[in-house]
Design a protein around this nucleic acid. Structure first.
Lengths: 129, 129
DNA sequence: AGTTGCCTTGACGCGCACGTGAAGGTTTAG
DNA sequence: CTAAACCTTCACGTGCGCGTCAAGGCAACT
């Protein structure tokens, strides 16, 4: 299967797939005329990347998962590096939840009383995803 | 007080203060030589902006608060527009909390069992702050 | 042969927010 | 006198995940 079909089946674009390749996430062999040639395994890889991005992991963070699948493992998250990424992200999410909870309290307090003087902490990190 | 002193007292930079002015958030009168001349009221405004930013409001969102203070109100959040910003931000935060909770569950599940096939929702929005 | 539609590489653009940097000039403080 | 602080304007930076041309080659159908 060529890049256009893979893009369609994965619900993405050819540009994104070429970008993944340029980032070393998706190696495709070439046909004699230079076209990229993909198979079901590649589709699997792309779907893995997409589902990880969907939970807020960066492309960079998907590397270990891709490597794990390429190493022949059945699921991308059974390797130590992948699990480490999960743990790190979980810690991030927890920090984010905590911070957002505080922000929520702040907003509620301000909405409830007219009088403020509850000064919040300076922001030390960003919550994202 | 001139811009350097205000920056120091507010814990920011002169560039940021000039930027706020260019955004219409901080009007300062000028001395004959063209220098900006600030007073305690301006310091109050800057602190208001900072504390709102600290809870994740954008500079744009701080406008109503600044306007409210400038209109002579004692606290920046006693005006309807300001309170509306609070309510909007609260809704954002709630949505974000919900989403992050789901992400957290996903990560926990993946860490607990090796076998996955729990596909998350595609991301529809970004949580930030 | 022509048209359509796939494919290739490469360089640059964008969107967002919040500023920062640099250049080049004037004023003030010590 | 000199260094520091101030002024202006324009442009650039940051991060990420692509998008947008541009210029051309290859394939398949009519």
């Amino acid at each position: 299967m060529r890049i256009g079909e893979l893009a369609k089946r994965a619900g993405t674009t050819t540009r994104a797939l070429r970008f993944y390749e340029s980032e070393g996430l998706l190696d495709a062999p070439r046909t004699p005329n230079g076209y990229r040639e993909y198979d079901e395994h590649h589709l699997r890889l792309v779907r893995e990347i997409q589902s990880l991005q969907a939970v807020g992991l960066s492309l960079e963070d998907t590397r270990p998962f891709v490597a794990c699948l390429r190493a022949g493992h059945e699921s991308g998250d059974s390797c130590p590096d992948s699990r480490e990424v999960y743990r790190r992200k979980l810690a991030e999410v927890d920090a984010c939840l905590e911070r957002l909870g505080a922000v929520r309290e702040f907003l509620l307090a301000r909405l409830a009383f007219q009088d403020p003087c509850l000064v919040p902490e300076p922001r030390e990190f960003q919550c994202s995803s």
